[in-house]
């Protein structure tokens, strides 16, 4: 029985330098990368709010908001 939480993932396009770390190390495969390397949130429903992408983003570009 997993608890479903709704997380809104915001990526600041000005800050993001497209390093791909968020996508590479997301345990839930929430992200995919566009051809130019831009991270896209393609499976937001899988997000468990572990915040690893946020903490690992070198560019302060990711914000996670949990909706209650």
């Amino acid at each position: 029985m997993s608890q479903v939480i709704n997380v809104v993932i915001l990526i600041d396009p000005i800050r993001c330098k497209k390093c791909g770390l968020c996508q590479a190390f997301c345990p839930q495969k929430v992200y995919t990368l566009a051809k130019d390397g831009t991270p896209l949130v393609t499976s937001p429903e899988k997000c468990t709010n572990c915040r690893l992408c946020d903490l690992r983003c070198p560019d302060f570009a990711i914000t996670l908001e949990v909706l209650t």
Binding site: I14, K17, R56, C57, D59, F60, A61
Partner: peptide
């Protein structure tokens, strides 16, 4: 603790410095 107006920072894509600053 951040001067948010100064971002994005000058470090290269994927540089660890941003991650340490975040932590």
């Amino acid at each position: 603790y951040l001067e948010n107006g100064k971002l994005p920072h000058m470090w290269c894509p994927g540089c660890g410095d941003g991650i340490i600053l975040r932590a």
